[in-house]
Design a protein around this nucleic acid. Structure first.
Lengths: 238, 238
DNA sequence: CACCTCGTGTGAGATATCTCATATACAGTA
DNA sequence: TACTGTATATGAGATATCTCACACGAGGTG
């Protein structure tokens, strides 16, 4: 993790993203630019995050830990999106942690300085509401889809999402839980993908050999229901 | 549908619900109280709703119509909650319609008069963000659960939700779609419930005979994950 | 009335998915 | 070293769920 403050690169990110336009007040003084390496934790479990993050580029995954102690993969985040907005709103139902899937660049607003300003800023809150509304809509729509389709389709979609650079290496336990199926069954279908030549096993996971086939399986789920992605991101500007 | 304006009953609802406290501006002038009968449409498909609703008492269900023309049951709303907030935010992904499941009482803010005030009111937007955040959290948490459990558990939960006064009469097609299973399979499990004495068939649907059993099946899903309900409502105040 | 659509209801066979049992490998630790 | 936990891996049999094919009744419409 690398934090940049008062740095030309920060200016660069700000001007590219129009991030400051989200706020009525002048947020620039509170802004830092943070680089995360793959696998870094952007927000750690149990800790109230120091920042409100705005993912400028990269991809991250969300985990929650259930009361029984199990850490479960819940969702993916794609730039551009907020991270830490739930905690800012004190919607703190479970411990959440967000982990970078690939190197990530975040604009980060120091909450110490401006939590109250954020929570009183109508322009920001309106953007946030719209963001959450869209996220919700996507969840709901994808829920309808997801429930209906068998594992091969969903797994294909999952692999495409979770495999940066064509290299898939999620732990089977997590993947199974995320996909809502048994470990055993996931293994069956993975093995089937290998047999069909979609995937190849490599030292630390699986490598995508036939991306087309996976895309085809994924798209079979999206026909008829215009949901661009199974997962929440923020590409629908208000 | 019965609309009350400038009426003692409006005052009564306002004072009981603290609805006006959600806003910075004086919203009272825009408030009406609307009664819906069971099966009335609170928001109609394709129409941008005239009001932002706040469900004071009652229960409603949300439908969306998919591009293929099918109307699908998506979610339930329990008082207290907002209705029409998505449309206010212009999150208009699909045609949504909300239908009263039992007689419902709504406070309704006339959008004509105060749309801009709402979208500029930090206090309201903060409440709304928190509401949407909670809704999202519930969706996500329930998603994890829902996917994991077989139909009997989910159906039990569904029946309890969808059966006001112990009388269940959703159309099987809708129910099947909502539950993400086949019409055929739903019928199997319904028949099984009847055989086990949980339900009895009556003229226009099914009657709950053994509520305890259904509750037990529902609760089996909630152990280990502290989600009070599968569905979005607003009982978690910020 | 004949005809259509739609919701209900049923049966039989195919698939998807789960449960349980078991084996191996690796990392931590007493 | 032995012990423990965790992830990977595979097999066999049990369930849950799907697909397809069909029958019946109610409501609308020519």
């Amino acid at each position: 993790m690398r934090i940049l403050h008062n740095h030309p690169e920060v200016q660069n990110a700000l001007s590219k993203s129009n991030f400051l336009d989200i706020f009525t007040f002048d947020a620039e003084a509170y802004v830092k630019l943070i680089h995360f390496d793959a696998d870094d934790e952007i927000t750690k479990e149990g800790e109230v995050p120091e920042y409100l993050f705005y993912l400028v580029s990269g991809q991250a995954k969300l985990f929650i830990t259930l009361p029984n102690g199990k850490r479960t993969l819940i969702d993916f985040f794609n730039a551009p999106c907020f991270i830490g907005e739930m905690e800012l709103l004190a919607v703190h139902t479970h411990s959440r942690s967000v982990q970078a899937l690939v190197p990530c660049v975040c604009l980060a607003l120091s909450l110490d300085g401006c939590r109250e300003q954020l929570l009183s800023d109508a322009r920001f809150l309106r953007t946030l509401s719209t963001y959450l509304g869209n996220k919700n809509m996507r969840n709901v729509a994808s829920l309808a889809e997801t429930k209906t389709y068998p594992l091969p389709n969903r797994l294909a979609s999952f692999i495409l999402l979770a495999a940066p650079n064509g290299h898939y290496r999620e732990m089977h336990g997590n993947a199974a839980e995320y996909l809502g199926v048994t470990y055993r069954h996931l293994l069956y279908v993975l093995a089937d993908f290998v047999k069909k030549g979609y995937l190849g096993k490599s030292s630390s996971g699986y490598t995508i050999l036939n991306k087309e086939a996976l895309i085809k399986l994924t798209q079979a789920m999206h026909t008829g229901l215009s949901v661009s992605s199974l997962f929440a991101n923020m590409d629908t500007k208000e």
